[in-house]
C-alpha cells in the first residue's frame, strides 16, 4: 500500500503563444547576408520580453519575423500548433489582424484620419463590431491611454507622446494576444517613455498578453521579465530576470 502522492503546487509555466524554431532569414546575394540565424524562442503570455543587442544584430529583423511582417527563409513559426511561416500572405494578414498588435518607433498614424478613426481602422477591417460598437470601443481604447478628450484631433495636432499612445491604442484595438514593439520609446522623452513602458508592463502583467519589445534602452531591458540578447543574428542568451508570478498572485 502506497501513500497517496502529495499534491505539490506546480510552477506556472503557461503555454507559449508563439514558438520560433530554427528561424532563419537571409538576403539573397553572394555570399548571402544572414539577418537572423537559427533563432529558437518561445514567447510567453503574461510576460514582458525585451530583445536587446548592439545595432545591426538582427533584433528588429527577428521581431518582424515573429510579427509576420517578414517571412523567414527557413525554420518554423508556430501559433496554436500551426506553422505561420508557410501560410499564404492573406492568411498571415488575417492573423496579424486578429492576434498581433504593432507599435513602432515612429507612430505611423494615417495623417488623413483623426485619432479615433486611426484606432478604428483595425476594428473596421476585422469587421466583428458594428460601426457604432467599433466607435465605442475605440473611444474606450483612447480613454485607456489617457487621450479620451483628444479623439477628434488629426495626428499633426497631437504631441509626440500622444501620437505614440494613439498608436498603442490602435495596436490594442482588436484585443491582440501578442503585442510587438520596435523601439516604441525611441522617439519619446523620458516622461513619455516611462509611461509607455508602464503601459506595456500592464499589458503583460494585468491583461495577460505576450509583449515583445526590441529596445536598446537598458533601463527598459532591465524592467523586462525576460531578456533576449542577440549578437550577429543569433540569439545568444535568454534570461528570465523576474520570476513569473505564481498562480495565486495573478
Amino acid at each position: 500500500m502506497s501513500a497517496p502522492e502529495p499534491v505539490l503546487p506546480e510552477p506556472v509555466r503557461p503555454e507559449p503563444v508563439l514558438i520560433a524554431r530554427h528561424l532563419t532569414r537571409s538576403l539573397p546575394g553572394d555570399p548571402p547576408a544572414t539577418l537572423v540565424a537559427d533563432a529558437d524562442l518561445a514567447i510567453l503570455p503574461g510576460r514582458f520580453t525585451a530583445i536587446v543587442g548592439p545595432s545591426g544584430c538582427g533584433k528588429s529583423s527577428l521581431l518582424y519575423l515573429l510579427g509576420l511582417i517578414d517571412r523567414p527563409t527557413s525554420g518554423q513559426l508556430l501559433l496554436d500548433g500551426r506553422d505561420l511561416a508557410q501560410m499564404s500572405g492573406d492568411d498571415r494578414a488575417r492573423i496579424r489582424l486578429e492576434h498581433f498588435g504593432f507599435v513602432f518607433q515612429f507612430h505611423f498614424l494615417l495623417p488623413e484620419f483623426t485619432a479615433l478613426e486611426n484606432v478604428m481602422l483595425p476594428l473596421r477591417r476585422l469587421g466583428r463590431l458594428s460601426q457604432a460598437q467599433a466607435r465605442e470601443r475605440a473611444m474606450q481604447m483612447l480613454a485607456d491611454v489617457g487621450l479620451g478628450d483628444k479623439w477628434m484631433k488629426p495626428p499633426d495636432r497631437l504631441s509626440g507622446g500622444e501620437r505614440q499612445r494613439v498608436a498603442i491604442a490602435r495596436a490594442l484595438a482588436n484585443n491582440p494576444r501578442l503585442v510587438l514593439g520596435d523601439e516604441p520609446t525611441g522617439n519619446l522623452d523620458s516622461v513619455n517613455s516611462a509611461r509607455v513602458v508602464d503601459l506595456f508592463r500592464d499589458l503583460a502583467h494585468k491583461q495577460g498578453r505576450a509583449v515583445v519589445c526590441v529596445t536598446h534602452d537598458m533601463g527598459i531591458a532591465d524592467l523586462a521579465d525576460i531578456r533576449v540578447t542577440m549578437l550577429d543574428g543569433r540569439v545568444v542568451e535568454v534570461r528570465e530576470q523576474h520570476p513569473a508570478p505564481s498562480a495565486g498572485t495573478q
Binding site: G67, G89, A93, L97, F100, F104, L110, R125
Partner: peptide
C-alpha cells in the same frame, strides 16, 4: 502600416 495592421495586399 496598414499591412502590419493586417490589411492584405489585395486590400
Amino acid at each position: 502600416i496598414l499591412r502590419s495592421m493586417g490589411f492584405s495586399q489585395g486590400d
